[in-house]
């Protein structure tokens, strides 16, 4: 009995490891390819390990493209965007959880209802709005459609609701107004969930592709996701510099991912409960 169980566990481990290696292979290939010379890409049989760790591709990626600029754009848009997005969500979640007023449910459903209107299907009209306002090629245009996060507002409301009402009454007696109560007491108490959701927003905006593709024409305004598809290396089979560029983008996101792994995992588990 014990032996059979051991055999079963070992078999499971082997299968899991094989799947794991297959899953990680594309990532490995990106980093290996970043060091390939053009001949190694076109070689047959395909190269699986670089001949040398030459940095030519990285130099070409950094010198011949606006990669650094793209990364700066993405960083700016994702950080400012995620903070604005969280601010708007917190402002909605707070009165939903603590204040009593007429029309609360209506307002709640007006905000939550935007969930039913996927932004991918609204891009034509949203593009027209942005272009009529003369906002094409601006950072605001890129973050505009990500400013509202109904699901996150909902999750914040649930988190705020776990804070006892008596705190607010006590704060009011001490002469603390609602807004100060929110910034001084509620936000610090809900810090873990606020951080997790901000991180999620950051990733969402960092990864978005179709919308920034539409609202940016000027190469200097492109985000990383758009820019990486338009690096314009003439030889179509010369993947080297492109892979080097991808590797350079991946380094920060992989490290952030590994550092904040626990937070990200928690956030996902919390999201599942809402769903």
């Amino acid at each position: 009995m014990m032996n059979r169980r051991f055999a079963f566990d070992t078999a499971k481990l082997i299968v899991a490891t094989v799947i794991g290696l297959v899953v990680v292979f594309p990532l490995y290939y990106i980093f290996a390819g970043a060091f390939y010379k053009i001949g190694e890409f076109t070689a047959y049989p395909p190269t699986l390990f670089p001949d040398s760790f030459q940095l030519g591709n990285f130099i070409r990626a950094l010198r011949d493209t606006l990669l650094i600029r793209f990364m700066g754009n993405s960083l700016l848009v994702a950080s400012v965007g995620s903070v604005l997005r969280m601010t708007i969500a917190v402002l909605c979640a707070f009165p939903m959880a603590f204040l009593r007023f007429k029309g609360k449910n209506l307002l709640f459903f007006l905000v939550l209802g935007t969930m039913m209107l996927p932004s991918d299907a609204l891009i034509i009209e949203n593009y027209l709005t942005i272009s009529r306002l003369g906002l094409v090629d601006t950072y605001f245009a890129i973050i505009s459609i990500y400013l509202l996060a109904p699901v996150q507002m909902f999750m914040l409301r649930q988190a705020f609701k776990t804070i006892p009402q008596t705190y607010r009454e006590a704060a009011a007696i001490d002469g603390c107004g609602d807004f100060r109560f929110l910034t001084l007491i509620v936000l610090p108490m809900a810090k873990p969930i606020v951080l997790t959701l901000t991180l999620q927003s950051f990733v969402t905006i960092w990864n978005t592709y179709l919308w920034p593709l539409l609202v940016t024409n000027d190469p200097a305004m492109r985000t990383v996701q758009v820019g990486i598809t338009m690096l314009g290396f003439a030889e179509s089979l010369d993947y080297g510099p492109t892979f080097a560029a991808i590797a350079l983008i991946l380094l920060p996101s992989l490290s952030i991912f590994l550092i904040f792994r626990k937070k990200i995992v928690e956030g996902i588990a919390a999201g599942a409960i809402v769903g």
Binding site: G20, L27, Y29, I30, N207, I228, S253
Partner: peptide, 29 residues
């Protein structure tokens, strides 16, 4: 169990890769 945590990490690593990077890599693969 031992090693399961390692495989767990391997399974979730693709999350760190944005769609366009992944698409370019898969086009080559």
């Amino acid at each position: 169990r031992r090693f399961n945590a390692l495989n767990e990490t391997l399974f979730i690593l693709p999350m760190a890769v944005a769609m366009t990077s992944a698409a370019i890599a898969f086009r080559a693969l």
